[in-house]
Simulated scan of single mutants.
Amino acid sequence: MADGVIREDGEREETARGLTWPFARIPEAGEAISVADGVWWLRLPLPMALNHINLYAIEDGDGWAIIDTGLFTPVSVELWEDLLAGALKGRAVTRVICTHMHPDHIGMAGWLCDRFEAPLLMSRLEYVTGRMLVADTGRPAPESGRTFYRAAGWTEEQLAGWGRDYGQFGRVVSAMPDAYHRLTEGDVLSIGGEDWEVVVGQGHSPEHVCLWRRSDDVFLGGDQILPKISSNVSVWPTEPLADPLGDWLASLDRLAELLPEDLLVLPSHGEPFRGVQARLAALKRGHGQALARLERRLETPMRAVDTFASLFARPVGDGLRGMATGEAVAHLNYLERQGRAVREADAEGVDWWRQADTLQKSNGE
């Protein structure tokens, strides 16, 4: 999971296999490091377990195309002021490209677009979903959310806490532009005279944009391919029967068919790396192991919250319960779609999951 919960699949040890790290250090605050012709690596802090986000600036004529933006916080505003005046040499921002709608990626987008009268470029599902979640800020928590988390096994105290904290998304996102330029699979953007092809992934978010410069195989991967952690793949209350893990695994297969081995991957978290085929294989293997382990343990009926020990390598605290629940339900929904698990709701509305063949045996089949 990309935000601090570590899966129990030995993935940390596997990440070093087949990967190389071209750069000896990471950018300091206010610094930009050249990572490819005309491409500069920036980094902003995040106030969470995953404590940073990588941003990228691409030379675009006399200005810069910015890829992702960081959270909208006083710290980020100050650091962006320093970057614009210093490392980015006072040049204007020509466009802001957001890989997807999570707050650490779109948080400062409106601020930058407004300051430079620059367009925002996103895929349609990411833009619309981001606008929707910002609009939820300050709303009372919906009953559908309580139903979802109660079904997953949350206590009444935990549900009350979720209700108090609901609607925080927009507090770290500056006002999003009222218009945007849509990106779709296969689009080609000309940035600084070079072609960047749009490659869309799914699972971590609905229509995640990556950018590929085929001329020298530079790949801006966002959260779609991370070097040392697996991106969070979750089911959320807005779409409780979704199968994002199926989407994620299909995207991994497609990327493995599409991308060359010597690609330079510029991720949103961690460090730039080479060895994309080894990384994609490790990500797929890790989820496969987690699914097999979970299916075995469903011989005994479980709620979603009871599966945490099967999926994660450390206890899940209050701050990560929502994402851990979302990822657990994603694995369970996937098994259900595959005919490998079934759920039964009890009188209190709690879902109990078990192996599909266990249910058949209990029915005498």
Rank of each mutant, 00 (worst) to 15 (best):
D9A: 15
A16Q: 15
A16R: 15
R17D: 09
R17S: 06
W21I: 01
F23D: 07
A24S: 15
R25L: 04
V39P: 05
P47G: 09
M48P: 02
I53G: 06
E59F: 01
I67Q: 02
D68K: 10
L71S: 04
F72P: 04
D82Q: 12
A85L: 14
R95H: 07
H100Q: 10
M101T: 05
M101S: 05
P103I: 00
H105A: 06
M108F: 08
A109E: 04
A109H: 04
L112K: 04
A118S: 13
R124T: 13
G130L: 07
G130H: 01
M132E: 13
V134L: 04
E143F: 07
F148C: 09
R150D: 10
E157D: 13
L159N: 11
A160Q: 14
G167H: 08
S174M: 08
A175L: 09
P177F: 04
V188C: 12
L189I: 07
L189D: 08
L189A: 01
I191H: 01
W196R: 05
G201Q: 02
Q202P: 03
Q202I: 00
G203K: 10
S205Q: 10
H208S: 02
W212F: 15
R213Q: 01
D216Y: 06
D216F: 01
D217T: 05
F219L: 11
D223M: 07
I225P: 03
I225R: 00
P227A: 13
K228R: 14
K228E: 12
V233H: 03
S234Q: 13
P237E: 14
P237I: 06
L245P: 07
L245E: 06
L249I: 15
R254P: 10
L258P: 04
V265P: 00
H269I: 12
P272T: 10
A282N: 08
A282P: 03
L283S: 06
K284W: 09
Q289D: 00
R293Y: 08
L298E: 02
P301V: 13
P301T: 12
M302Y: 02
T307A: 04
R321C: 03
M323L: 15
A324D: 09
A324W: 02
E327S: 11
H331C: 14
D351I: 08
R354S: 14
A356D: 05
L359C: 07
L359A: 14
Q360N: 11
Q360D: 13
S362N: 06
